[in-house]
């Protein structure tokens, strides 16, 4: 019968203030490209990227949320199914850093309790415009017991590392299912919509 093109499916979510570069971070990871024109995300979008970790093909379904407050009710409804959440701020935008606590509260309110969290300080290529020291990012991440990376979608710094680390962290606590992986139950983990790719 048909064989799946992946062993596991992880559902990730990108959140953070509008304009911090969530879409660019994702675009760099999924398409290895960067676009300087700012197009505000409408509500919610997603991209797919399959990676291989510990000999397992892991399909990452990455949901990209709109940072704007007006989409809040739409975006928060996507927290529930996420297995990993990337909280992105902009190191050149102090407000986006101040709002981290607000976004962490949103995670507490709307996401699964065991969701993997990660903090990203994006635009780290713009050192001359930096207003948030790296140490402050590290400190707040430590306080909340979450991983932290400074990234640059433009300069392609730490993007893949961040996604792979998050995927590894999720994989680490995913119960291992034996090669009967024909029917890996994805929906129980992340409530992923019913589509399953089967091929040949």
């Amino acid at each position: 019968m048909a064989k799946k093109t992946y062993d596991l499916l992880f559902k990730l979510l990108l959140i953070g203030d509008s304009g911090v570069g969530k879409t660019c971070v994702l675009f760099r990871f999924s398409d290895d490209a960067f676009n300087t024109t700012f197009i505000s995300t409408i509500g919610i979008d997603f991209k797919i990227k399959t990676v291989e970790l510990q000999g397992k093909k892991i399909k990452l379904q990455i949901w990209d949320t709109a940072g704007q407050e007006r989409f809040h009710t739409i975006t928060t409804s996507y927290y529930r199914g996420a297995m990993g959440i990337m909280l992105v701020y902009d190191i050149t935008n102090a407000k986006s850093f101040e709002n981290i606590s607000k976004w962490l509260r949103n995670i507490d309110e709307h996401a699964n309790e065991d969701v993997e969290r990660m903090l990203l300080g994006n635009k780290c290529d713009m050192e001359d415009k930096r207003v948030v020291p790296k140490a402050k990012g590290e400190q707040i991440a430590r306080e909340h017991g979450i991983r932290f990376f400074e990234t640059s979608a433009k300069a392609n710094i730490n993007i893949e590392k961040a996604f792979l680390t998050l995927a590894e962290d999720i994989l680490r606590k995913t119960p291992v299912k034996e090669p009967n992986s024909e029917n890996v139950d994805i929906s129980s983990g992340g409530g992923v919509t019913g589509w399953k790719s089967k091929c040949c």
Partner: peptide
């Protein structure tokens, strides 16, 4: 908007399949 986005994302997923 929520419905349109859901439909868009569903079709996008199907297209990927």
């Amino acid at each position: 908007l929520r419905e349109v986005l859901q439909e868009r994302n569903h079709l996008k997923a199907q297209l990927m399949v």
